[in-house]
Computed example of a mutant assay.
Amino acid sequence: MNRRVLVCQNTSCRKYGAAQVLKAFQQAKVAAERSGCLGQCGNGPMVIVLPEAIWYDRVQPRQVPIIVEQHLQQGAPVQPWLYQKFHAV
């Protein structure tokens, strides 16, 4: 499955480090793209993995290697970091 990662780069997410999150995905050689506002301001940096539409909130650069390994390579979303608004456990 060809997955794409969108990282919000709008004002609120950038304030919380979204540029560094995007850079961390790109350094991990992941097809990561900047996105406009995802409508979840105040919960960022927001990350969406497509095509499954799996959302992560408040992502920090140190979390990226785990998301890459567990979700993108092994196909298992990182449950504790899922955005609860869309992925209630």
Rank of each mutant, 00 (worst) to 15 (best):
L72W: 06
S12D: 15
Q20G: 06
K15V: 13
I67L: 09
N2H: 12
A88E: 15
G39F: 05
F25E: 15
C41L: 02
E69N: 09
M46A: 06
R3P: 12
G36K: 01
Q40S: 10
L22H: 04
Q70W: 02
A32N: 11
P61F: 02
N2S: 06
M46L: 08
C8L: 01
A88P: 10
S12I: 07
G42N: 09
A24T: 09
E69F: 02
F86R: 13
V64P: 08
G17F: 01
G36M: 02
Y83K: 04
V7A: 06
R14N: 11
H71M: 03
G17I: 06
M46E: 11
V78T: 00
I67R: 03
N43D: 04
R14F: 03
Y56E: 14
W55M: 02
N2D: 12
A24F: 04
A18R: 00
K29H: 07
V68C: 08
I54R: 07
Q27S: 10
Q40D: 12
N10M: 05
K23M: 07
V68H: 03
K23W: 08
V7H: 08
V7W: 00
V49W: 07
D57N: 14
V78C: 04
A88R: 12
R34V: 03
P45C: 01
R58F: 03
A18Q: 05
V68A: 05
L82H: 04
S12K: 05
V78W: 03
G75W: 02
R3E: 13
H87R: 01
A28D: 12
V21M: 09
Q74M: 10
R4N: 14
R34H: 06
P77G: 12
C37Q: 06
A18T: 05
G36Y: 00
Y56S: 13
K29E: 13
V30Y: 00
F25G: 15
I54P: 08
R34Y: 04
Q20W: 03
A76C: 08
V64F: 00
L6E: 05
Y56P: 14
L50P: 09
G39Y: 10
C13F: 01
P45K: 00
R3D: 13
V49I: 15
Q63E: 15
V5I: 01
Q40K: 09
A88K: 13
R58D: 14
A28L: 05
V49K: 04
Q79H: 09
H71G: 07
M46I: 14
K29F: 03
L50K: 01
V30W: 03
L6M: 02
E33Y: 11
P65N: 06
R4Q: 15
D57P: 10
Q20Y: 07
R34G: 15
Y56C: 08
V78P: 03
Q70N: 14
L50T: 11
A18C: 01
N2G: 07
Y16F: 05
L50N: 11
F86C: 14
G36P: 09
V78L: 07
Q73W: 03
G36R: 00
I54G: 12
G42Q: 10
I48F: 09
L72A: 06
V64H: 05
Q74H: 13
L72E: 10
A32P: 15
L72P: 05
V64G: 06
E33W: 05
H71W: 03
G17D: 15
A53M: 11
Q63D: 15
